[in-house]
Structures are given as C-alpha cells and as structure tokens.
Amino acid sequence: MMKRSHNQQGVAIVEFTILLPFFLFLLFTILEMGRAFYTYTELEKLSRDSTRFLSSELVKGTTGLYSLTDADISLIKNLAVYGSVDGGSSSYLPGLDTSQVQVSLVGNYVKVEISYPYQPMLTVIPGYFLTDDVDLNVTLTSSYSMRVL
C-alpha cells in the first residue's frame, strides 16, 4: 500500500500544470465579459439620459413642429460624452468622443445613438494555430429613442 502512494507523487502537479491554462482562460474570459457588460450598461445609461434630456428641452417652433438646432445637438453630445451639457476635459468612458454620438429628430421622436469602440484588455489573440491573428476589438452601439414631451 505504501509503495502505491509513492508512485503517485508528482501527478497532482502535472495535472495542475495541464489544467492551469484552461482555468486562466476561463477566468479572464469571465472578467472581460463582465467588463464589456459594465461598459455597455454605462453606454446605455448615457444614451438614455441624453435622449431624456433632449426630449424635455426641445420646444415647438412657430410652425408648431419641433426643430433640432446645432446648439441642441452640441449640448446633447457633450452630455453623452462628458456627463454635462457644458462639456469637460475627460470623457465618461475612455476613448469616447463627440463624433461618435449621432442625434436625430424624426417627427416627434428624438434619437441618440452612440457607437463606442470597445477595447478589451487583450486586444489580439496571436495566431499560433491560425494563419492570422484574431482581433478582439468590437464596436458597442447604444441607441435610445423617445417621444418629445
């Protein structure tokens, strides 16, 4: 009996060494998915709040129709990117720019759409077994529409 356990020494470390890369891959995948979900949730919040603000700020023109001015668009883009209509020095999400925000008015509905280039911590999977590297950068798009109040 003693001799049998003596033959098993070192097997656990070999098994651990084989399974460690899979466990690390699973751990980093879960962390990255959580980070991506958090970023998308923040993007949704920014587009929703910007749309809500715009829908309450638009006023009817003399013709009885709503109109969207360049000043309104600028305010909403600042609100979506910096979290303030006055603008700011740092964006709410890293790398978010006012050029990535689209504002439109169709009939009595306003729409704010934000396209955010999400960059994961590991941006490329090297192509060890493939011919090309796999690019992991994606564009997260959040769009929110609301009737003008």
Rank of each mutant, 00 (worst) to 15 (best):
F22D: 00
F22K: 03
F23R: 09
L24H: 13
L26E: 06
L26Y: 08
L27S: 08
L27G: 06
T29A: 14
I30N: 06
I30T: 15
L31F: 12
L31T: 06
M33N: 02
G34H: 12
Y38W: 11
Y40P: 01
T41C: 05
E42M: 12
L43P: 01
L43K: 03
S47K: 05
T51W: 02
F53T: 08
S55P: 03
S56V: 06
S56C: 06
E57R: 14
L58W: 12
V59Q: 15
D70S: 15
A71R: 10
A71C: 01
D72Q: 09
I76H: 01
K77I: 05
K77T: 05
K77G: 03
N78S: 11
N78R: 07
L79P: 01
G87M: 00
G88C: 08
S91Q: 02
Y92A: 06
L93M: 09
P94H: 05
L96E: 00
Q102P: 01
V103A: 00
G107R: 06
N108C: 01
K111V: 08
V112Y: 03
I114T: 03
S115P: 01
Y116I: 00
P117W: 05
Q119Y: 09
P120T: 04
M121T: 14
L122F: 14
V124E: 12
P126I: 00
P126S: 12
P126V: 05
P126K: 06
G127Q: 08
Y128V: 12
F129M: 13
F129A: 13
D132V: 02
V134P: 00
V134N: 03
D135C: 08
L136R: 12
N137Y: 10
L140A: 04
L140P: 00
T141L: 10
